[in-house]
Design a protein around this nucleic acid. Structure first.
Length: 484
RNA sequence: GGGGUUGUAGGGUAGCCUGGUCCAUCCUACAGCGUUCGGGACGCUGUGACCUGAGUUCGAAUCUCAGCAACCCCA
């Protein structure tokens, strides 16, 4: 604390640079403000304002989600308010959420006859409608999603984009199937789509089956996706739940099978929130600011004119380039603001712009532009082949980002054999721990390691090892980490 | 769930311990004008703040209490 104070006072610290990234928490907060992602000065705890620039990132990120879901899901929207009687129907579900629900109890000055819950999630809003919509096997499968805000009265420490009382960007999908097996397949499909989503954000991740005590309230099981943050803690950035027929029973969602029998449906739901953006910014960003993958950058190419000599000439060349790149459907910004080039470079680096073009008299003379990539690579490119060159560089940048993140990710996961080792590994990373699978041993693991169990890694097979608690031989492993 | 720290212009800060020197310091930002422009330009002129409420006091940025908010650590 005192250190950073004296540091910012001392020397010629003319410009606000970000704190070192190994001081993750401080770096993260500064980044959100300086790069104009979100403003957490709104005077209600756990509720933040999206800056237009941050919202533009959100738009691009969520359009990937839409693109991935739209082929076989329908986007829809349900109300924010849920009547108390519907909300209170599913006992397990209530247990999981009732401490976190905001209630609307008055209309104007008069008390409401039926209190209304602000959705903490929308199962209890959607499923009564599913009962009305679903009559026959021909109505199945049904797959819908919505992107909405949800409210949770968090008692833990709130954090911008990570732990909020208003989640502004909750994408929740809900699917209905004829059989349990079909629903199980849908959970796999969901994880596959999310995998592709995170791959496009150049983010590596872990997939695991949550332990029984940490599954979604009312679910048969929960599969989750976690990203390892720069400080080694994990952030849950996606979940897919097999709901079995729990809600179907409660909300009487049945269909008429081909043989005329009335059967309960099987359901799934799966969600992603703005935490995906927290992960995106945190994993790729550096001390100069954001580093954004091409696909989600609000500004993909920034053109900085070097106004020397014939200024009009330089500007007109820049405008031509801007038009040309715009025609190639790139998001281009020509920076004509009254700053010197160096200041503009820093500004656009803070904003995570993947490609910067510098255009000055020297370049024009040679028929080139100077192309600088956000990861530092810099080269002269002939103007006639500019579009192709940019596309090429954008692809390479994507590979660099993914490679870098992958390396970090792999360096932070380690197989361990004992509780001692697990404890030290989870100080700044993820431990892969042998576990017999018993609930008792699981709780003891969490207690003694001082970290949470993420669950069994999916799509991996392990050899036999002794459970770190009871010593029983087992092929089961579990990830353990300190979680956000 | 438990503990701790903090709240002064848009951002970062000095002042608080020891009440009056403060119509509040410095950096940055912002506005206007001019000179500039190949990695954070400079000059001149301006703009802008003591979280809210109550209390103590002749007098509160400073002390006390409460509220709100933010951050950190531990379970």
């Amino acid at each position: 604390m005192t250190d950073s104070k004296t540091k910012s006072n001392a020397k010629d610290s003319k410009q606000a640079k970000l704190p070192a990234k190994n001081n993750f928490s401080e770096w993260y907060h500064e980044l959100l403000i300086t790069a104009e992602i979100i403003d957490n000065r709104y005077p209600v705890k756990g509720m933040c304002v999206w800056f237009p620039f941050g919202f533009a990132i959100r738009k691009n990120v969520y359009s990937i989600i839409r693109e991935l879901l739209d082929p076989d899901h329908q986007e829809t929207q349900f109300p924010l308010l849920i009547p108390e009687n519907e909300f209170m129907k599913e006992a397990q579900h209530i247990k999981g959420f009732e401490d976190e629900v905001y209630w609307v109890t008055r209309g104007g000055t008069a008390p409401l006859e039926v209190n209304l819950a602000l959705r903490p999630t929308s199962e209890t809003a959607i499923y009564p409608m599913f009962k009305l919509w679903i009559r026959s096997h021909a109505d199945l499968p049904l797959r819908i999603y919505q992107i909405v805000n949800t409210f949770r009265y968090e008692t833990k420490h709130t954090r911008p984009l990570i732990r909020l009382r208003e989640i502004t960007s909750f994408k929740e999908a809900h699917t209905v199937h004829a059989t349990w097996e079909e629903a199980a397949e849908q959970v796999e499909v969901a994880i596959k789509r999310y995998s592709e989503f995170y791959h496009r954000l150049a983010l590596p991740f872990l997939v695991s089956r949550r332990p029984s005590w940490d599954k979604f309230p009312g679910a048969d099981y929960t599969t989750a996706i976690d990203v390892i943050m720069p400080d080694g803690r994990t952030l849950q950035v996606g979940t897919a739940h097999h709901l079995g027929s729990t809600f179907a029973k409660t909300y009487e969602i049945t269909y008429e099978a081909e043989n005329g029998e009335q059967k309960l449906v099987s359901q799934t739901c799966y969600g992603i929130s703005e935490r995906c953006i927290a992960a995106l910014l945190s994993v790729h960003g550096d001390e100069k600011g954001l580093v954004l993958p091409w696909e989600v950058a609000p500004v993909q190419v920034a053109i900085v004119p070097i106004l020397l000599g014939d200024k009009e000439k330089v500007l007109s060349v820049c405008r031509e380039l801007q038009e040309k790149l715009g025609a190639a459907r790139m998001r281009v910004k020509l920076d004509t603001s009254d700053e010197r080039p160096g200041a503009k470079f820093y500004k656009w680096e803070m904003k995570g712009v993947p490609i910067r073009l510098e255009v000055g008299p020297r370049d024009i003379e040679k028929g080139v532009v100077t192309l600088a990539r956000r990861d530092g690579a810099k080269k002269a490119v002939p103007m006639v082949a500019l579009v192709e060159a940019i596309n090429q560089e954008a692809q390479e940048l994507q590979l660099v980002l993914y490679g870098r993140a992958k390396k970090f990710n792999e360096g932070r996961v380690k197989e361990v054999g004992s509780i001692e080792e697990a404890r030290s590994q989870t100080e700044a990373g993820v431990a892969l721990v042998p576990w017999c699978g018993e609930v008792d041993c699981g709780h003891q693991l969490e207690d003694q390691v001082g970290a949470n169990m993420l669950g069994e890694p999916q799509y991996q097979i392990f050899s036999e090892a002794a459970c770190a608690v009871c010593g029983k031989k087992s092929t089961v492993r579990t990830y353990m980490a300190r979680q956000y």
